[in-house]
Amino acid sequence: MQPEPILRVRGLKTEFQSAAGVVRAVDGLDLDIFPGEIVGVVGESGSGKSAMAFSILRLTPGKIVAGEVQFRGRNLLDLSEAEMERLRGDRIAMIFQDPMTSLNPLMRIGSQIGEALRYHMGLSRRQADGTAVQLLQSVHLPDAERRIHDYPHQLSGGQRQRVVIAMGISCAPDLLIADEPTTALDVTIQAQILNLISETRQRSSAAVLLITHDLGVVAQLCDRVAVMYAGQVVEQGPTTDLFANPQHPYTIGLLRSTPHGRRRGEPLRPIPGQPPRPGDIATGCSFAPRCHLVEERCHHQAPALLQLGGGRQARCLLREESAHESTP
């Protein structure tokens, strides 16, 4: 018996108006997230992974033109702006890539954390301060009692990201969306923050949607992975299966591209060509121009996301034989 997903995205399409015309950043995205799991969304720049996250929260500067975002049974796209505001930071929290720009430089960190607590949970200033200290302790910020009086610039990058995470979990959200939360950090600090995210999930049972370009981060942290390319999910499945037996040629290419554990002289096998620029229009499969398994039909026929069993999905015409009959 499958539990109900906490977030269920169907056919999401987001467009941006640019000088060159309409650019579709998210192009028919389907994604499920179940309570308590960490789902990784991997993709390269321009794959639409950030646009997707911002669309779920309805914070995108673009226009959501189609689809639905079911969160605990309600379609977020139907809510009023006021209802969305109550939800953001409370039931769904977001952690951004650059902790410096997501903190107000003119506000002490204690007040910043407290603001959400007072707004969403109606705490008094004193209660909020107390809770802020507890939260900062829970994200292992040393000296939390003193630190709440600091301004963001007095903290290091890793410490700032801890503060942002503390803010994110302050109202015990059901879903935490983390957009490249460790990309701006050094490796040893990244390891600390990844541990913290994993620990947070265990403690609070919040589901985490982790957006990253780093396959290593996904492999180490996520229960399930969705691989995005050109605004679509091209492959999806449990992390271990997907890494052991990737089905989509793009995923295969990505895994072959990493130099991890490869000895000197052993050539890498990169994906040829360039990722499509947002706004390029593909007639068939959007990966066809770079695909090593490409066939004639791939240039004309757009593949659907096929169910492969075992929770696996892939958007590739070549996998049709192995696809199951089941409907998405």
Binding site: A19, G21, P272, C291, H292, H299
Partner: peptide, 23 residues
């Protein structure tokens, strides 16, 4: 397309007609 030798031509992208901005 052959396997990803780094000197493979990088431009040809037949199904992505590079969209020239209107100006």
């Amino acid at each position: 397309m052959s396997e990803g030798s780094s000197s493979a031509p990088l431009l040809a992208n037949p199904s992505f007609p590079s969209r020239r901005p209107v100006a």
